[in-house]
Design a protein around this nucleic acid. Structure first.
Lengths: 171, 171
DNA sequence: CGTCTCCGTGTGATTTTATAACATTTCATG
DNA sequence: CATGAAATGTTATAAAATCACACGGAGACG
């Protein structure tokens, strides 16, 4: 099987804090990536596509070595650089993000627009939801301007408890 | 010698984007930590003190293994858990922070107040400056409230170019 | 059509970061 | 001083990431 190896079939998802039609979300996202690569002269190779499919399919943050396992199952190379290179490409081009707190990777939710992603990470179930932030507009931006620091990129990750786990805990 | 092994003597510092009297800053911070540990019943043991001294002295983000090297020079245990445990203590109690982006640690600039730290990391010289942020007040906080996510902690790290390196680059 | 070059891939080895497991020591308390 | 909890020391191992080099396919160019 090419899809999950853990827990998700393909319909119901407690992930990202919200349910949605996952199958079309995967194929849509792949289509978008394909188009954008074509239009920007980027090579959307089989390994890169497969890694993005894996991330979209699982719909959660995956470590490079988990991805590697799934790549192996798919008949691709199984040494770390294979996964890391594909991930580098996906991250560099905004198709995926790295969650620094987890040393893990997740597919981007809206790869079309350029954006400043922020993440909410559940410490109980490890679910990760992507959202937006503009840290450069708040206190951080003020500090940067005051000192002359030139911000190029920001990592914003909130750790806490997702709605589903809050319910469970309260129950 | 108990101080640095890399490059800082004790006077001049391009670190943290600003110069200051470093020797007193180290001893002051140690004194503060000592007091706070005493008042809160925390054990400010030799290893923990030494690790904090190292972080304060170097005044930049250090990897656990660099710290370990310096611990060894100081006659302390030299196996990873020694450093990691001391760092866990310092981080848990707000005397130091982990820079997720760098897998490195840095002494807290104002360990007295509880705060939501944010960091500016220079990708050219690796200098790190701590500042404040309140991501929970902006778009991220809105998203969390909207979805029911309970934020407990936030990681905010801006990557870019520090003032000194901007100058060098422009020159 | 050849062939050159660049870029991506495959692979083995290694480095860097972090934790597990367990014995020993230290220290506050009774 | 006995005792138990917390901290440390040490060995071993796991997890994450990179290095170095060989191979191969797609486009550029004669």
């Amino acid at each position: 099987m090419t899809s999950s190896s853990k827990k998700n079939g393909s319909g119901d998802h407690p992930l990202g804090f919200a349910h949605h039609d996952h199958d079309t979300c995967v194929s849509d996202a792949i289509a978008v990536a394909e188009e954008r690569c074509a239009s920007q002269g980027l090579r959307f190779t089989p390994v890169r596509r497969k890694v993005l499919e894996i991330l979209l399919q699982e719909h959660r943050a995956l470590g490079a070595y988990s991805i590697l396992d799934l790549l192996r199952e798919g008949g691709f190379g199984s040494q770390p650089p294979v996964a890391y290179r594909a991930l580098d490409f996906l991250v560099a081009n905004g198709f995926a993000h790295k969650i620094e707190r987890l040393n893990a990777f997740i597919a981007c939710v809206h790869p079309s627009q350029s954006h400043t992603p922020a993440f909410m990470i559940c410490r109980l179930c490890d679910a990760v939801a992507e959202t937006q932030s503009s840290p450069a507009r708040g206190a951080l931006g003020d500090a940067a301007r005051a000192t002359g620091f030139r911000i190029e990129r920001t990592v914003v990750e909130a750790e806490g408890v997702c709605p589903a786990c809050v319910e469970k805990a309260d129950a």
